[in-house]
């Protein structure tokens, strides 16, 4: 009996000390971690809508039924207060783990303006090409005919893209390419249903 109590007491003591010290460390670290995440996200917002100078969360611009669609989007403005477009946050399953990204959409919601992969765990050298190079360039309208990529809904093709809503897949990383496009489609359609196409340019 005595030994049992001793065992329990030891583990309780170890647990208490560990828990107390961790809560101290967490109190210091958590605000910094949150600040880092916000920083990465806001840098992404400015990156996917070229020329952006300020942004407003969608809750200020087009308040909708809160949390119904989990939409996280920002209206991006230039220095004069002109609406340049929207930045929408999206998240979905990639090849090996979640992909989190930010996609820029034009004010009329018909074109993508840019994309930024915030976090991914894709295969190095293959799937990680979603981060930079020819694949994300397509979302910026680079390397394709003038109006850019038509935002809706996008499809992935192997080989050169022809139609305005076609995205050329990365060789050897079709699953990653498709994952990004389906996250973009989902995010854009959420944004569409929230603000409606008619009042989009407001």
């Amino acid at each position: 009996m005595k030994t049992t109590l001793h065992l329990i007491a030891t583990l309780v003591a170890v647990g208490l000390v560990a828990g107390a010290s961790l809560s101290l460390v967490n109190g210091w670290a958590q605000p910094l971690i949150d600040a880092n995440e916000t920083k990465v996200k806001m840098a992404g917002v400015m990156e996917v809508v070229p020329g952006g100078a300020a942004s407003k969360p969608i809750s200020e611009v087009a308040p909708g039924p809160a949390s119904a669609d989990n939409l996280e989007a920002y209206q991006v403005l230039d220095g004069q207060g002109q609406v340049l477009g929207w930045a929408v946050f999206g998240e979905g399953t990639g090849f090996s783990d979640k992909i989190r990204l930010m996609v820029g959409v034009s004010p009329d919601l018909n074109r993508t303006l840019g994309i930024k992969i915030l976090k991914d765990s894709e295969t190095p050298g293959l799937g990680t090409k979603i981060r930079e190079g020819a694949y994300p360039d397509q979302f910026f309208g680079r390397g394709r005919p003038a109006p850019g990529l038509e935002a809706g809904p996008l499809t992935v093709v192997k080989g050169a893209a022809e139609a305005p809503n076609e995205v050329q897949a990365i060789t050897g990383a079709t699953i990653s390419s498709k994952a990004v496009v389906s996250i973009v489609n989902e995010s854009v359609s959420k944004l569409r249903s929230r603000i409606g196409q008619g009042e989009a340019g407001r």
Partner: peptide
């Protein structure tokens, strides 16, 4: 294990906070 896990969590939180 509890002792080790405590120190690992400290490292993890510190890295997330300082070297994201």
């Amino acid at each position: 294990i509890v002792i080790i896990a405590t120190f690992v969590t400290v490292v993890d939180l510190t890295m997330k906070a300082r070297f994201p």
